[in-house]
């Protein structure tokens, strides 16, 4: 499996379209994060200097949402391209065990997501430190709230890119994978329009709330363990269903 993942990395090195997409993911996320921070006066009516240190971090980390969306697209393209362009014959001849093939692809997407989101976090961190120090906003405390935010951001990117990959395996199509992951991402926003008691119930089923447990320091109503459980159930259920479908397909 090590060799297979290495081969996937080779593929993104060789193919300009993948390279550009990853570059675009990183640049776009950084640009979004910075724009959010500098437009805070317009969007929230606060001056940059009025923000707390943790709020600065919080706002730039919104750039991670852009990364998640870009990686949703990337994961779906990456998975389906190897399944539909016909390359599937060669790929499955090398790895005829479907379970192994599936796990390799998901592992690759997971590793790539973690690398990209970690790189982004480092960039944001350095940038925020710079902003904080030139505005003399005080020191950043490396407490559990801070680390929870960072972990939450990485988890979010990882979670949605895996959902997209699993969706792509299930639908055997790029739009299928993207649409699935984006629906899971944006449905909670729609659900919030329902009456409170209904939406409360539905929202606790969706992963968004669990992800926010990490990112939003004010969230108290749901525990870490509960949040992780919800995310794990989502990933395991989606993967199980999409693998079951993939296993039965004749190419």
């Amino acid at each position: 499996m090590k060799h297979l993942i290495k081969a996937d990395f080779k593929k993104i090195m060789y193919l300009p379209s993948y390279r550009y997409m990853i570059l675009a993911t990183i640049l776009l996320s950084i640009v979004f994060g910075i724009i959010f921070l500098f437009t805070i006066e317009v969007t929230q009516g606060k001056l940059l200097t009025e923000l707390s240190v943790l709020e600065v971090i919080d706002i730039t980390l919104l750039g991670m949402d852009a990364a998640a969306i870009m990686l949703i697209i990337f994961a779906a393209i990456f998975v389906t391209k190897d399944l539909t362009s016909g390359a599937v014959h060669t790929n499955l001849a090398i790895t005829p065990i479907r379970r192994k093939y599936y796990l390799t692809k998901l592992s690759f997407i997971a590793i790539l997501s973690i690398i990209i989101s970690t790189a982004l976090i480092i960039v944001f961190f350095v940038f925020d430190q710079f902003i904080i120090s030139i505005n003399q906003m005080g020191a950043l405390s490396f407490d559990s709230g801070f680390f929870a935010k960072i972990l939450g951001s990485v988890l979010m990117v990882l979670f949605y890119s895996l959902l997209s990959a699993a969706g792509a395996f299930y639908f055997q199509s790029t739009p299928g994978g993207i649409a699935f992951a984006l629906s899971v991402m944006f449905l909670p926003a729609l659900i919030k329009m329902f009456p409170d008691d209904v939406s409360e119930l539905l929202l606790s089923v969706f992963p968004e709330k669990s992800l926010h447990t990490f990112i939003n320091i004010n969230a108290t109503n749901s525990s870490w363990v509960g949040a992780i459980t919800v995310l794990l159930i989502w990933i395991m259920l989606t993967c199980a269903i999409s693998f079951w479908r993939f296993k039965k397909i004749d190419y």
Partner: peptide, 14 residues
């Protein structure tokens, strides 16, 4: 070793 479909590859690769 098998050849099933000669166009079974990513055409942007060399």
């Amino acid at each position: 070793g098998t050849l099933i479909d000669p166009s079974a590859l990513d055409k942007n690769l060399t």
